[in-house]
Design a protein around this nucleic acid. Structure first.
Lengths: 322, 322
DNA sequence: TTGTACGCGTTATCAA
DNA sequence: TTGATAACGCGTACAA
């Protein structure tokens, strides 16, 4: 409860001097500094962070917007953010939105209300129009393959990567290719769908709606898709999966249903997480942690270069499922 | 930028009245309320959260201390916390510690400095002695099978659950039982080790250090343990695994090395997450999300019952790996 | 090198 | 039903 004034009184100095000692400012004589430190000790002083935030107008906290933390992609992303944040003495506030726009607005309002200095959109549902309204209230970084020009964005080139995956499957002799998506509405999904349509046109294949599975994010989702695959009259020969979890589910589901991989059905996925290596799943790597870390440094850097787009490299890891 | 005073001026009322309107207090005439709301609208008013925190002495933020978020156990835990927190309009601040005591101290200092109103220790490395020094600075909840009596704790009965798992393996004919641990130092691990020693004594088995594998948390860790298993002269016939990830790694590693499960080696794990169901791994469930959710409500409740210990039930799901 | 005095934006108290 | 004013605790011109 002891505040800076009580310390000053006990130490026989002014509050300014106390403040200087606390913040390691120069121009404090050694004996006064000692007196202040001693007073702080005896009164068990702790500074009130809210007062600092109020006085400074900043909080050294940043927010992360994500649908749900309980998914390897997002938790790894946050891990990358956390590691970088700690270097800059930033605290992290989590906004789990479940893709609800109202919750994303909460996060934006927290930015407007100065709770956080900046906001990282790991994945968003809200429209860019609304996002633009918050342009003045703090830094915002988008982690998506975005073509807008207001906010900095960081991602891999999703369209190109998806096309690369399709070309790889085609080169392996596949023309009947199905794919899974997290959710149709996301900007990254949109890029993936574009790549798919383009490539199918190139190899003269019709787009079959029943070969496109959305809402696929988890290992369980992948397994369920495999059951749907079984019921399909006309079957694809390959899957391009949202991520390694879905691919693992597909693989396990396939084995359970008696299909052999890659003979009956080939599987290629994204992310290249440990599970892909362990289950020997061919996967296109995405540097998730790095994207997280870069989103922090970009956030801090945002004064200078307010709307740059960063594109990170992806890489194919060939394994046994294609 | 507009603050409460400017609103007051424009609306022709006092700051008190503005504050009343903002906080839905009674005793504001309808026309003044309208005038205030209009002024807020035209000046694009947003309240400064730091000023509120300072004036109120609270922040409506809670902290979570965990080693690293990029693990299904912890991310699911946080998911449980987040879902409960949102019901109480609480924000979540993440403290990723990597089991470093200094980082745990950071979190405690944030509690002391009023940044957060309460702190949840999902897993801790710091000693209870030090923890006790922060008893006055806010609520603390421990999510461990703890016998201390200062802070509320929430967990499953780890010793009992581990014993239950061992008894199950023994009933299935196993006497040569190995196990994996997250880290030796944790309170939960200690309980598990106790149970192990007790049960081995009961069935007249020596404790073999080389059958105890620590630092096992991930799927990769499990796979590596299996390689060590291969090099073992005298081999156990069963593994009790830290969690489903480790079990999955053990299972995949076993298959890769040509062992059959459960004939060559049986595997039983904890958590019962989706991957266990999908890979048909026998597992003892832990209600992780529920523990997370309860930790929040306990935190809020902590005035009344400052040191209760909550023990949640576990349950065995028998599958094909034992 | 030190201190005074004010600003930060809001809530709470008390008098009217 | 309203408003003046004092906290809340710290940072920082500016003066000395």
């Amino acid at each position: 409860m002891a505040n800076i004034r009580e310390i000053a009184k006990l130490a026989g100095v002014s509050v300014t001097t106390v403040s200087r000692v606390i913040n390691n400012h120069p121009y404090v004589s050694e004996n006064k500094r000692k007196a202040v430190l001693k007073a702080m000790e005896t009164l068990n002083y702790k500074r009130n962070i809210h007062a600092i935030h109020l006085a400074k107008g900043r909080s050294n906290m940043i927010g992360i917007v994500l649908p749900n933390i309980d998914h390897p992609y997002f938790s790894q992303f946050v891990e990358g953010v956390a590691e970088e944040a700690i270097k800059h003495h930033l605290q992290i506030v989590l906004f789990q939105t479940n893709y609800e726009i109202a919750k994303e607005l909460d996060a934006l309002e927290s930015l407007r209300g100065n709770l956080i200095d900046g906001l990282i959109f790991c994945s968003r549902a809200i429209s860019l129009d609304i996002l633009y309204q918050y342009n003045d209230y703090g830094s915002i970084v988008l982690c998506e393959d975005s073509d807008q020009s207001i906010y900095p964005s960081i991602s891999i080139p999703h369209e190109q990567a998806f096309q690369f995956g399709l070309e790889y499957l085609i080169a392996k002799g596949h023309t009947k290719i199905a794919y899974t998506l997290g959710r149709r509405e996301g900007p990254n999904s949109f890029k993936r769908m574009q790549a798919y349509e383009k490539m199918m046109k190139r190899i003269n294949q019709n787009i079959r709606k029943e070969w496109i599975f959305d809402k696929c994010l988890s290992i369980t989702d992948g397994s369920e898709v495999m059951s749907k695959f079984k019921a399909l009259k006309e079957k694809p020969t390959a899957f391009l999966a949202t991520n390694d979890q879905v691919a693992a589910g597909l693989l396990l589901g396939a084995k359970k249903l008696g299909y052999t991989v890659p003979n009956d059905i080939a599987i290629l996925s994204f992310d290249n997480q440990p599970i892909a290596e362990l289950m020997d799943i061919s996967s296109i790597s995405i540097p998730i942690k790095k994207i997280g870390a870069l989103s922090v440094s970009t956030l801090l850097d945002t004064n200078n270069q307010s709307s740059k787009k960063m594109i990170l490299p992806f890489k194919l890891y060939e394994r046994s499922t294609v």
